[in-house]
Design a protein around this nucleic acid. Structure first.
Lengths: 243, 243
DNA sequence: CCTACCGATCGGTAGG
DNA sequence: CCTACCGATCGGTAGG
């Protein structure tokens, strides 16, 4: 997993630094030091600091999107819109919280503060990914699965917003991100949908859904899973003073 | 509403700039220019840029907290934990989204990227406010109102997280923030609680709950409210390319 | 509250 | 990929 080429190292440490401190608070000297090169050498690999950012934004959005798409594609094609949306949420969460989620997290934490000219290149990708969500929610509404009184646009923004905020508080002390992820999806799903969740299936690999397309997440943990969940409840301590 | 004294003007424009561009991306020259003074003059009112930030963080947390507390206090004392939590969510949202929410929004958007020594002074306040939420959720659990399988800590973080993300996408094009606010609270409430919401009361000023303690939000719009909600559904267009 | 200024640090470049 | 350096801009200050 560790990057082999200096260019990749620069991207990785930059993503980690951008995620932690923001874009403009991160200096090229900090990046260079973390990558164990000299400041000027960054420009051998990138034209500018802005270019490093652009590449991180791109990778970040691709990561969450691929992760969400993989989860949806792993479902049987006749799966309900609700199941697809829950799968997409799990995938999006996975992209953000799994080990190596620095690119996605950096992208999501940093994007909102960027000036328009730095957002621009990334906007199309985000828009495309947003349309993927729009279609899922439109299908859910047509199937009558969205709770009456809820605006489709709001529901989408609140659900994804709750997920996008997770990098703000989730860390290793919460244990396996899958335990947290299941609860988040369950909670959001119950708030959004009318239909009774005919598929607690989603919550475990013992499901009928083929999880082969999502190898990293559908781990060898099959039987111990339920027990782990019960323990999780106690283990999941609150982070200090997090709003 | 417009600030009268220069010191207040500095705080207001700083909050707006910090919210929009982040702390370190905002320069003293930008602040001075927006406040219509010269850069050096900021130091007549504040010891440092850091001090401006500290005051904004303080005001920001106080705003959401006061707003949440006011909503809860306006309930009858025997109100269910669920109603109290929903009231607190409405209040927190109000603090963020209402006109003048720049302090709260700046505080919440910027905090996560700050170095520890800049977070420190604000940490106690946030911790205190977090405990207020902890108590509400603990009461809900003891009353058996939390859906089984959900960890209290996760629920709190996800609910408040969804709310804290709203400054990222909400703007004037969404119309009255109260319409949005009602939907968010409803959606989160349904996801969190077991009990049937015996109180759609929360959703309208025609409720039995005394709203006198929250003057700014319980506006003159009493009868037109329901109709507005119906229209809202169409009016609430998606912001461009917002994840 | 302004003018005039300072040392430090920033992103970035030339030449090797 | 490094050394050595540059102009611009940063947060901040002295003196009025």
């Amino acid at each position: 997993m560790r990057a082999e080429f200096t260019r990749e190292v620069i991207l990785e440490v930059s993503a980690r630094l951008f995620r932690a401190h923001g874009y403009s608070a991160t200096t090229l000297r900090q990046i260079a030091k973390a990558a164990k090169i000299k400041a000027g050498s960054v420009y051998y690999h990138f034209k500018s600091k802005d270019d490093v950012l652009q590449e991180i934004l791109t990778i970040g959005v691709n990561d969450v999107r691929d992760s969400a798409l993989a989860r949806v594609d792993a479902l049987p094609p006749d799966a309900s819109p609700r199941r697809k949306i829950e799968a997409a949420m799990k995938g999006h969460l996975e992209g953000l919280l799994r080990h190596g989620g620095d690119f996605s997290s950096a992208s999501i934490r940093v994007y909102g503060h960027l000036p328009p000219h730095l957002k621009k290149r990334n906007q199309e990708m985000r828009k495309g990914y947003g349309e993927f969500w729009d279609e899922l929610f439109a299908a859910a509404e047509q199937a009558g699965e969205i709770r009456p009184g809820l605006s489709l646009g709001i529901v989408r923004l609140v659900a994804i917003g709750a997920i996008n905020w997770t990098p703000e508080w989730f860390d290793a002390t919460h244990g396996n991100y899958e335990d947290v992820s299941d609860q988040i999806v369950s909670m959001l799903g119950e708030g959004i949908f009318t239909s009774v969740s005919e598929d607690k299936a989603l919550e475990g690999p013992e499901s009928s859904a083929p999880e082969t397309a999502v190898p990293e997440s559908a781990a060898p943990e099959t039987a111990i899973r339920t027990e782990k969940k019960l323990r999780a409840r106690k283990r999941l301590a609150l982070p200090e003073s997090e709003l």
